[in-house]
Structures are given as C-alpha cells and as structure tokens.
Amino acid sequence: TTTITTTNEEDARRIATEWKNKGYTVHVEKRGTTFRIEVR
C-alpha cells in the first residue's frame, strides 16, 4: 500500500485519477486540510 498526502484538492484528484487509470485501487480520505490517498 502506498500512501500519498497533499493539502491541494486538485493534486489529490489528479493523483487519484492517474493511479486509477493504471489499474490500482485508490481510496481518498480527507483529514482536516489534508488529503490522504491510499493506493493498493
């Protein structure tokens, strides 16, 4: 599992989409101002 964190919502969406397009399972969680993107 790879975890990526960013405070930028646009980055979070872009990163999540990129990983999904590669065939990975992506889970995005917002904690306060931080977005945690888990890639499996």
Score class of each variant (00 low, 15 high):
residue 1 T to Y: 14
residue 1 T to C: 13
residue 1 T to I: 15
residue 1 T to N: 09
residue 1 T to S: 11
residue 1 T to M: 13
residue 2 T to H: 14
residue 2 T to V: 14
residue 2 T to P: 06
residue 2 T to I: 15
residue 2 T to S: 08
residue 2 T to Q: 11
residue 2 T to L: 15
residue 2 T to R: 14
residue 2 T to G: 06
residue 2 T to M: 15
residue 3 T to G: 04
residue 3 T to M: 11
residue 3 T to S: 07
residue 3 T to C: 13
residue 4 I to H: 06
residue 4 I to S: 02
residue 4 I to N: 02
residue 5 T to W: 15
residue 5 T to Q: 08
residue 5 T to H: 10
residue 5 T to M: 12
residue 5 T to R: 06
residue 6 T to V: 14
residue 6 T to K: 03
residue 7 T to F: 11
residue 7 T to I: 07
residue 8 N to K: 06
residue 8 N to F: 06
residue 8 N to S: 13
residue 8 N to H: 06
residue 8 N to R: 06
residue 9 E to V: 08
residue 9 E to I: 11
residue 9 E to Y: 13
residue 9 E to H: 07
residue 10 E to S: 09
residue 10 E to K: 09
residue 10 E to R: 09
residue 10 E to F: 09
residue 11 D to M: 10
residue 11 D to E: 14
residue 11 D to Y: 11
residue 11 D to I: 09
residue 11 D to F: 10
residue 11 D to T: 10
residue 12 A to D: 00
residue 12 A to F: 03
residue 12 A to E: 00
residue 12 A to Y: 03
residue 12 A to K: 01
residue 12 A to T: 04
residue 12 A to P: 00
residue 13 R to A: 10
residue 13 R to H: 12
residue 13 R to G: 06
residue 13 R to W: 15
residue 13 R to Y: 14
residue 13 R to D: 08
residue 14 R to M: 08
residue 14 R to W: 05
residue 15 I to L: 07
residue 16 A to M: 09
residue 16 A to V: 11
residue 17 T to V: 09
residue 17 T to I: 12
residue 18 E to A: 10
residue 18 E to H: 13
residue 18 E to W: 15
residue 19 W to Y: 11
residue 19 W to S: 01
residue 20 K to Y: 09
residue 20 K to V: 11
residue 20 K to R: 15
residue 21 N to F: 07
residue 21 N to G: 07
residue 22 K to Y: 05
residue 22 K to F: 05
residue 23 G to Q: 02
residue 23 G to A: 02
residue 23 G to Y: 02
residue 23 G to R: 02
residue 25 T to L: 11
residue 25 T to P: 04
residue 25 T to A: 10
residue 25 T to K: 09
residue 26 V to I: 05
residue 26 V to Y: 01
residue 27 H to Y: 13
residue 27 H to V: 13
residue 27 H to L: 12
residue 28 V to I: 13
residue 28 V to D: 00
residue 29 E to T: 14
residue 29 E to D: 07
residue 30 K to H: 07
residue 30 K to D: 05
residue 31 R to I: 15
residue 32 G to T: 03
residue 32 G to L: 04
residue 33 T to S: 13
residue 33 T to K: 11
residue 33 T to Y: 09
residue 33 T to E: 15
residue 33 T to M: 12
residue 34 T to G: 08
residue 34 T to P: 01
residue 36 R to W: 15
residue 36 R to L: 15
residue 36 R to P: 01
residue 36 R to V: 15
residue 37 I to Y: 00
residue 37 I to F: 01
residue 38 E to S: 12
residue 38 E to G: 04
residue 38 E to L: 14
residue 38 E to M: 13
residue 39 V to A: 05
residue 39 V to F: 05
residue 40 R to M: 13
